[in-house]
Design a protein around this nucleic acid. Structure first.
Lengths: 151, 151
DNA sequence: TTACATGCAAACGGTTTGCAGGGGA
DNA sequence: TCCCCTGCAAACCGTTTGCATGTAA
């Protein structure tokens, strides 16, 4: 488990090694990505960064996100709800839960996942590099709301 | 395994039961959906339908797709490559393979999937209704191209 | 006959791009 | 100093919407 600052330093070094400059805006974006557990959209990252750098433009956020995506340092989620969401905390593909009602996104654990990948890879002509698994459903909070309505 | 015509009739009846009219354009869209194994985009469905009805507008395709989506009769895929893709042949969630290179989309089999769903549902506060599993990698055709380049 | 569907065109909204000016190394 | 980065605004493009006309039932 990486701390926020460790992950930020990790990203800073990777950017430097690509001859990219570390600007205050970029540092704020990296920090937001490393600290966010809610898989934010560009708009949400932008709002956060504006808190520290009010003149930041959303184009800068898009450009940095695009840069990191090209380096394989973040996962992009497209749920067909307009905007994309990003996980820059842990860029390795891992299972997610998405609430159909409030659209919150959470990490979930599926221990059997690795085994399935191995089995499938052996039985297929496809060269599989990653599994993206999304479980859709209703989160505990929205279940509680639904219960209240029923009562 | 449903035949194309059976699936078209299935969709026609479901539309009728919702007081929707069966126009020639809609029938052509339904047929394209039922016959397509390549998970087409709206643009691709539009091009196909235009073959039979040259005056068809893309707005009509969007409206019919949206109608069917609301009825749960097709799966929508967002791969972050601009446009959405649709599976109207089999609307139940099932695993897909996506080629990183040519972006082709194929159905794949993961027999253990049902078991995992059960296990996970038992160990979680989340009410899970569906798993969307996408395996990313390189399809046999693109592997062959890569081999040739190496040689 | 009467809603509903079509097709055109405009609007919409997330994302990308071009470019002049600014700032990291 | 040199290039890369920023921020603004315009362009882009998939998708949605409004409305007059057409048509399935």
């Amino acid at each position: 488990m990486m701390t926020i600052e460790t992950r930020v330093q990790d990203l800073v070094e990777k950017l430097r090694s690509q001859d990219c400059r570390i600007t205050p805006q970029r540092l704020a974006i990296l920090h937001t990505l490393a600290a966010s557990h809610n898989h934010p959209s560009v708009e949400q990252i932008f709002e956060k960064v504006k808190g520290d750098f009010p003149t930041t433009s959303i184009a800068t956020v898009y450009k940095t996100i695009s840069l990191l995506k090209g380096m394989g340092e973040l996962i992009e989620f497209s749920f067909g709800d307009g905007s994309n969401h990003y996980d820059g905390r842990d860029p390795s593909p891992h299972p997610h839960f998405i609430c159909q009602i409030c659209r919150c996104i959470e990490d979930i654990e599926i221990p059997e996942l690795a085994r399935i990948g191995e089995q499938l890879a052996g039985h297929s002509d496809y060269l599989i590099t990653a599994f993206h698994i999304n479980a859709w459903g209703i989160c505990p909070a929205c279940q509680a709301v639904a219960e209240k309505k029923k009562a």
